[in-house]
Design a protein around this nucleic acid. Sequence first.
DNA 1: TACTATTTAATTTTT
DNA 2: TTAAATAGTA
Length: 720
Amino acid sequence: MDVTPILESLNDAQRQAVTAPAQPMLVIAGAGSGKTRVLVHRAAWLIDVEGVSPQSLLAVTFTNKAAAEMRGRIESLLGMPVNHLWIGTFHGLAHRLLRRHWREAGLPLNFQIIDADDQLRLIKRLLKNLEIDDSRWVPREIQYFINAQKDEGLRPKHLDDDGDPNRRQMIALYKAYEEVCERGGLVDFAELLLRAHELWRDNAELLAHYQRRFSHLLIDEFQDTNAIQYAWLRLLAGKTVVPFAVGDDDQSIYRWRGARVEHIHQFQKDFPGTVVVKLEQNYRSTATILKAANALIANNHSRIGKNLWTDGVDGELIKVYAAYNERDEADFIVGRLRDWIDHGNLRADAAILYRSNAQSRVLEEGLMNAGIPYRVYGGLRFFERAEIKDALAYLRLVSNRDDDASFERIINRPTRGIGARTVESMRAYARANNCSLWRAAGAVANDELNARAANAVLSFLHLIEKMASDAADLDLSQQIDVAIHASDLINFFRKDKGEKGETRVENLLELVSAGKSFEPGLADEMSLVDEFLSHAALEAGEGQADAWEDCVQLMTMHSAKGLEFPLVFMSGMEDGLFPHQRSIADPSGLEEERRLCYVGITRTMQTLYITYAEQRRLHGMDKSSQPSRFIAEIPDEFVEEIRPRVQVSRRLLSPGRRATSKATEAELGIRLGQRVRHGKFGDGVILNCEGQGAHARVEVNFESAGTKWLVLSYANLDLM
DNA sequence: TACTATTTAATTTTT
DNA sequence: TTAAATAGTA
């Protein structure tokens, strides 16, 4: 057999991993070292050379994107489709199992998946129902608590309050939440994993069946597994299924979401004889970038330890720019992007990274003013949009009348005269009789409510029943179409003024066509609608559909993981912002921030700019800040400061020195009181100035935009 | 019920 | 600052 295509492009370490005999393998894959490639080639090797049947392989990833990419690459390497190969996310695979074995899992046939937003709403509703003060018991915290327990594999019955009344209440709420989910046939993300684990744990035969079926287990981003995911893998592996895990402890940035790097050590204990392979040759970045990243991450103590290297060129030094403020920072970045683009480079090859989403605003303004197209990652995704979730809630209620979460979402959307009072009486009835809101609505309409309210409620019930009886004759997209028209949702949003309403209507119509092109995969007993709804929850879709325009990429460092760009800007590199204030005090929190910084740096292929602002407007207040400690952790030899040679530190900005600089006036040929015109702010008068050279700033009082400090070299003021 | 004023809080987010 | 949630008013 010719194994050349599978092996030819691999280095020694990669080849060792790919061709390893059937034994537990742990591949520690540094950034840009060909992690996915190893996984893909391993799968191909097993199938093509070892003769393992595709259906004996199970490959697990964290994101749908990664799963799709892996499948595609395996198929193109093998030159054939591998339909029976199970590749999916933890959640997707768990979902698949639960649909197949819903009875054994103790779920209704048509159970529905709720996303994080649904879950939060459900908790809020629960608190209201139990008349619990939501300022003392913050819904978000309860949600966090519940998910954290589930991530650890813990049910309420496993939890002890330790005599802590606070904790006791949390546990009670967790229990109450479970009951609501149970009654409504609702399963949240963490529940998918937990149930799937319990399914195998409690059904020896079922587990044995899957252990027979699968001979090899491939795991991507292993450092991101949480306790329940690991337990699930461990259970499946048993003594016979051979695990092959790929991960990088230095890129573990989701501890706050339950991920435990420790699993890398645990793996070696649980699977004696594990062979560890380190991939340390990097094919992405210049030597300078790598050395800088290595030096930074060396400051972390708890790590396996590896040293990325490259046989490529040293490349450019990392450029550090100290901006006056966030506006200057944005202007600087825009200026550099301009150069980049003017030199004929793709905008899409440049990324601006930041620690938190709020930081994108100033950058966006800068890009907008400069007319540079950009794309911000991480907004609302298609299936997360309110109007889409409204429409889906109709379908869900049709599928399952006991789905209280959906019931309450749409009972008065569009408004149909069913107000808070009416809903409250339904809630009370449901609570008293331990039934769903749907049942309660029917009962309450018949005896408690006044004619007006009763009418409204009855016609709502009728509407849903009508949809349900019609549904049998309709295909998926027609059902969606009926849902948005019969409910009048579409007109409800059409009335929304302006562009907003328009996009909402468009989205609803888009949903109809999504239904048309939806292809069922599982095709079991589950109805097509239920499958579509699960798909919507599990794969929320892309943030923005406007596909392939060449634009600058803006995203958080978290969402940059796994990506690479020739030109990278790491912005807002200030202590307090990055590392974030909330992580600074805790050593392990700080280490995670450092790993995040490592992830950021290692996104870079060629050119890296690190920028920070000496003064930043945060929460409406100007605050001066120190450069991020991480900058100082990069050895000087890899860094080039590009800061106009005027020593402007906070001293200059302090009130005492904020006097007019005669030198500046003379140098720039401006004077106080001079009238100027700005491209965006219009006309104004110079009130003050300071600094020299490229960093000289003036304070201008604009007629319409108010008083602003502008950096002269960027502001492009016209003297008048 | 719908609109407006006021208050409050502010990381990161696959699924 | 600003976005979201809440309270108050028409």
